[in-house]
Computed example of a mutant assay.
Amino acid sequence: MTLLTEQDLIKIRRHLHQIPELALHEVQTHDYLLQVIESFKQYYLEIRVPEQSPTAILVLVKGKKPRRTIGYRTDIDALPVEEKTGLPFSSKHPGVMHACGHDVHMTVALGLLNYFSENQPQDNLLFFFQPAEESESGGKQAYEKGIFEDKWKPDEFYGLHDNPALLAGAIGCRMGTLFAGTTEVNIDLIGKSGHAAFPQNANDTVVAMASLIMQIQTIISRSIDPIQSGVITLGKVDAGTIRNVIAGHARIEGTIRGLTQKMILNIDHRLQDVCDGVARSFNMDVKLNLNQGGYWPVENNPDLTRSFIKYMKKQPDVNFIETEPAMTGEDFGYLLAKFPGVMFWLGVNDDSQLHSATLTPDEKSIQRGVDAIKGFLIYRMEN
Rank of each mutant, 00 (worst) to 15 (best):
E6K: 13
D8K: 08
L9P: 03
R14L: 05
I19S: 02
P20G: 05
A23Q: 10
L34F: 04
Q35E: 15
K41I: 09
E46Q: 14
E46L: 00
R48S: 13
R48T: 11
R48W: 13
R48I: 03
E51W: 06
Q52S: 14
A56P: 06
L58I: 04
L58W: 08
L60V: 00
K62D: 12
Y72D: 02
D75G: 06
A78P: 07
L79M: 12
V81R: 11
K84P: 01
T85K: 03
T85A: 06
K92T: 13
P94V: 02
G101I: 05
D103V: 04
L110A: 04
P121G: 08
D123R: 01
N124L: 10
F127W: 02
F128D: 03
Q130Y: 06
E133N: 00
G139L: 11
K145P: 03
I147P: 03
D150N: 14
K151V: 12
K151R: 14
P154Y: 11
P154N: 01
D155W: 00
N163W: 11
L166T: 01
L166P: 06
A170D: 02
A170K: 06
A180N: 05
A180Q: 05
T182H: 11
E184P: 05
E184R: 12
K192Q: 15
K192C: 06
A197F: 02
A197I: 05
F198V: 12
Q200I: 07
N203D: 03
D204K: 05
D204S: 04
V207D: 06
V207F: 01
V207R: 05
M214K: 13
S221C: 01
I224D: 02
Q228A: 12
G235W: 02
G235V: 09
V237M: 09
V237E: 10
D238Q: 14
T241L: 13
I242E: 15
I242L: 13
I242T: 15
A247L: 05
A250Q: 01
R251Q: 14
G254N: 01
I256T: 07
M263G: 00
L265P: 06
N266Y: 02
L271P: 09
D276I: 08
G277M: 10
V278T: 12
A279R: 04
N283H: 15
K287G: 00
N291H: 13
Y295G: 07
W296E: 08
P297N: 05
E299Q: 14
N300H: 00
N301D: 15
N301A: 12
S307F: 09
S307W: 03
K310I: 10
K310D: 15
M312Y: 09
M312T: 04
K314G: 13
K314T: 03
D317V: 06
D317G: 05
T323R: 01
A326P: 01
M327E: 09
M327L: 15
G341T: 03
D351T: 14
S352Y: 13
Q353P: 06
T358Y: 11
T358I: 05
L359P: 09
D362S: 10
K364Q: 15
I366R: 04
Q367P: 10
D371L: 07
A372K: 10
I373F: 05
I373K: 01
K374P: 06
I378G: 00
Y379S: 08
M381K: 10
